[in-house]
């Protein structure tokens, strides 16, 4: 390899490395490990807000709180198709964006939704208030047993 072609290869690969590193840095820069959005855990308040046998919409966390014989459960109101907020429609739920339909348990009965509504974790904090964590998905039959 002659001097010229060596220097050219050196210059080109130097520029290439710089470009690749810049592209990588740009991607990393755009994904900071911080969230400016609402926290995934939301305190919904006293359990008395959610009467037995009822399904109550908790706006703060976009969940429907289900209180049945087994205890408290939280079903996400976020449509599994494209993330719109579903609304009650008779016994079940309906998404206003593309018409996905769910039954009372959140199972898909129509429309483009690929899966049933997510159930998320319900806990009680030390003061006995109901807390949901919308990042933690749980089994649809899981309930927080109320003592």
């Amino acid at each position: 390899m002659g001097r010229r072609s060596f220097l050219r290869a050196l210059g080109l690969s130097g520029a290439g490395v710089l470009l690749a590193q810049s592209a990588w840095a740009t991607l990393r820069f755009a994904r900071a490990p911080v969230s400016y959005g609402p926290p995934s855990k939301t305190t919904l308040g006293e359990r008395g807000r959610f009467p037995r046998g009822a399904v109550t919409y908790a706006e703060a966390a976009r969940v429907f709180v289900v209180h049945d014989d087994a205890g408290l459960g939280a079903m996400s109101a976020v449509c599994t198709h494209l993330g719109c907020t579903v609304r009650r429609d008779g016994e079940g739920f309906l998404c206003p964006c593309h018409g996905s339909r769910y039954n009372a348990k959140g199972e898909v009965t129509g429309g483009p939704a690929p899966r049933s509504l997510r159930y998320v974790q319900v806990e009680e904090d030390r003061r006995g208030r109901v807390v949901v964590d919308t990042d933690v998905e749980v089994d649809p039959d899981d309930r927080l047993k109320l003592g």
């Binding site: 755009a30 969230s35 400016y36 959005g37 609402p38």
Partner: peptide
Amino acid sequence: LLLLGDQTVGEA
């Protein structure tokens, strides 16, 4: 995530 800078559409 790259587009929104967060999990949902918000400040970022």
